[in-house]
């Protein structure tokens, strides 16, 4: 049956409409969970709030476990799913910049927009900086060296399971155990760190 759009069950036009609705729902949940507060977001770095770690780790696990089960029951063809291409250089440099931006600015791109939505000034500043960064990157991209670095170490549409040729089911189980261990450690750390009110 699924995935719904490639199999023509949802048309491309409706796909965009549904994407907007999902985006609004996502933004609402982010805001409702307090993710528009930069203090809550950076708490993961200072050890007083691990909501970000828990939420995103759990979301990833629910998605992958759900996909594997749905594939097994025949509701989704796992092999048709779009796998985002891996450019190793850009991925590494991009995640370093993203991490630095996260700890300095207190937002990631999505949460900065939820902050904008509720009218936070730091959210506005962060989003402005985001667009300045996009502009600088676009201008630099004309330089051949930057473009070559950007496209360097292209690995294609791979997943970790394909790359290391490991059984996805075992991998997901290990990943789940690691996540639960991380949650447990996070809650122990949180209890030891001084409470911060935000």
């Amino acid at each position: 049956m699924g995935p719904l759009t490639p199999n023509g069950i949802i048309s491309t036009e409706w796909n965009y409409v549904i994407a907007v609705l999902i985006g609004m729902a996502f933004g609402f949940i982010l805001e409702a969970s307090g993710f528009s507060s930069s203090r809550k977001l950076v708490g993961v770095f200072y050890g007083y709030d691990f909501a970000v770690l828990r939420v995103f780790f759990t979301a990833g696990l629910v998605a992958i476990i759900g996909l594997l089960y749905l594939n097994y029951f025949g509701y989704i063809d796992y092999s048709v799913l779009y796998v985002y291409p891996t450019y190793l250089n850009s991925a590494i440099l991009g995640s370093v910049i993203m991490g630095l931006g996260f700890i300095i600015g207190g937002f990631c791109p999505g949460t900065s927009l939820t902050a904008v939505a509720i009218g936070k000034l730091d959210g506005w500043v962060f989003t402005g900086g985001l667009f300045i960064g996009i502009f600088i990157f676009s201008e630099l991209f004309n330089m051949e060296a930057v473009e070559n670095f950007y496209n360097g170490n292209y690995l294609g549409h791979i997943t970790i399971m394909d790359y290391f040729d490991i059984n996805p089911y075992g991998f997901v189980l290990i990943f789940t155990l690691l996540a639960v261990a991380a949650f447990t450690i996070a809650s122990i750390v949180r209890r030891r760190v001084k409470q911060v009110f935000y």
Partner: peptide, 15 residues
């Protein structure tokens, strides 16, 4: 629950 569901993955055969 999360661990149990992930553990269940070991028992489903790769189609």
């Amino acid at each position: 629950v999360l661990i149990a569901v992930a553990f269940g993955l070991l028992f489903i055969t790769v189609p």
